[in-house]
Write a protein that binds this DNA or RNA. Structure first.
Lengths: 165, 165
DNA sequence: GACATAGGTAGCGTTTCGCAACCAGTATTA
DNA sequence: TAATACTGGTTGCGAAACGCTACCTATGTC
């Protein structure tokens, strides 16, 4: 990846800082994981995660503000509020799983009793990897930066397909 | 993913908290990205990222402590110190790219001038996704939790292959 | 020897975080 | 209908993390 280095300006405006603005705070990922596990209510998050109530309130509001979750009062019990993942929030699952898999690969004292499997055949999901357009796994040394205007026709088509996901 | 929910204990000890212990602080991911872009020296990180020097010192020390980077004085100029990614650090690339791609997909004001491509054919890399053992892309609703002891022979073989990466 | 450079440390004020107490609106119970 | 409990917050306060600036030490250069 050494041929074309990202410039200072490119690094400052790439997608990573904007993602970290939403997910870079201490509890954001753990809240998200709880939401993926079906938690929906303030008390559930509070008791299961042990997060301070004011911080929880603040984080949930920020996730809603950034379009990662929705907040809607329950119709059947109007004391309750339901926090649900938006498509934008669900779309964070690959990033979260990649981080989790990394923690399981490299850190001791990690409980791996539960394995994430494909519901269809019950087989464990594959490790999250970086792939080329044709599906080959790529390592760091296979990667390079390229200016968008230098992509050419085939490259532009790749991007358009990707944006549809 | 609703059939088997992670318990409180499982959530507390899964790989995500241990990953966040290393990467959950404000500058960790941005430092890592800078390292992927070839930055190696204290001054480079300091001037390009605009991070406070004491925080930078602290973060680098923590990344070294957790085995994500190495710290070695330069032999040719002993004022300088080289910070390099370890294999454990390089292994964070899929997680970082997934996060970055998410930011690019969902946030405005993101500069996408530079595209990450496969150096071999110059085509953009694919979006990071979750895949089944046979390579199919999986969505949230295709996923389930399973106890490791219930995996069966084929499932165990999948895990063993995965751990070799 | 004078000066510049690289890496890092030490104050000091600001922001974030955690803990506990309190509060308002809604359901439940007597 | 009055008392109580539950849910989702907010407020105050102390502790920790963070950012800015200045300073320090070791090494290289002139």
């Amino acid at each position: 990846m050494g041929e074309l280095r990202e410039s200072l300006a490119d690094m400052a405006t790439c997608g990573l800082p904007s993602a970290l603005e939403v997910m870079g705070e201490r509890w954001s990922f753990l809240l998200l994981r709880a939401a993926f596990n079906g938690l929906k209510h303030f008390e559930e998050f509070s008791t299961e995660l042990g997060i301070a109530r004011n911080i929880l309130s603040n984080r949930l509001a920020r996730l809603v503000e950034h379009g990662v979750m929705t907040r809607q009062p329950c119709s059947d019990d109007r004391r309750k509020v339901e926090y649900c993942l938006t498509p934008k929030g669900v779309d964070l699952l690959p990033a979260m799983l990649a981080l989790r898999q990394w923690g399981e690969r490299h850190n001791q004292n990690v409980n791996t009793q539960l394995v994430l499997v494909d519901a269809r055949d019950g087989l464990p999901v594959a490790p999250v990897t970086i792939r080329a357009a044709d599906g080959r796994d790529l390592t760091w040394h296979d990667l390079a930066w390229k200016r968008r205007e230098d992509l050419g026709k085939a490259g532009v088509e790749c991007c358009e397909k990707a944006d549809l996901l």
